[in-house]
Design a binder for these strands. Structure first.
Lengths: 123, 123
DNA sequence: TGCGGTACTTACCTTTCCGTAAGGGGGATC
DNA sequence: GATCCCCCTTACGGAAAGGTAAGTACCGCA
């Protein structure tokens, strides 16, 4: 659905990692799923103030396509869809931890304010 | 010059880190400086096939503004300008290593081709 | 005399990203 | 029967990112 069809060739691992992470809300989605394990669409939406349904759907689809997020549809009425991390998604989150720590340290040194969104993410 | 003036407030460390890293060539610039220590403008340009002078200048300026890159101008003719990493830039590169390793592992598993650009970057 | 190299700056244009708003199809609730 | 909730999809449009190409000012080399 209209996204630059990268997925290689990449010049390095960072390039490959950034490719699947590019998108305004993807880091946040990964963190929500890391914290809560399983989330439904509307739960994710409520957990991420500001995200539109369109972008949430689009990013979830891309993350699924990239094998980071698992999507489980239950044939019920009203529909129920549950999202969770795949093993790849979990290892990605673990690989992001040092970067998150660096960012936190940087914020501390610079005195940059952090917005608190109920359970601050990534360290 | 014309960049969304973020620099906080951030929702987490990842957010803060991604803010200074956003830009098509920034990861590559950081890695070039990590590998070579000190580089001149034209050397960076030659090391990054595809980058335009405009984007290289712009990204270098932003990295300098964010305290990741040091810019040293020598009052000579013809002009000489040398770029190198600050301590912050070096710690950022170290924090990026697990992410780079994740990307490399992913490329290996998916059989994604990597482009070789003389000294493959970030792991 | 004209070209290449140094390190940029500027103007213009295309591509990509993202937000807004609306619709959809069924069911439960008031 | 009107509205709300579920999980999306589609169309439209603005903003931001980034590419192209030209210009700047000076010098060395052939």
């Amino acid at each position: 659905m209209a996204r630059a069809p990268r997925r290689g060739p990449y010049i390095c691992g960072i390039d490959a990692a950034f490719d699947v992470l590019s998108g305004k809300w993807k880091g946040f989605i990964l963190w929500e799923l890391e914290v809560h394990g399983v989330r439904r669409f509307a739960e994710l939406r409520r957990g991420m103030p500001g995200v539109s349904e369109k972008m949430l759907t689009q990013h979830l689809r891309e993350l699924e396509e990239d094998g980071l997020v698992h999507r489980e549809v239950y044939a019920e009425v009203p529909p129920r869809v549950e999202y969770s991390l795949t093993e790849d998604g979990r290892t990605l989150n673990r690989a992001l931890e040092p970067l998150g720590a660096w960012g936190v340290e940087r914020m501390r040194r610079e005195g940059t304010e952090a917005v608190d969104v109920a359970g601050t993410a990534h360290g």
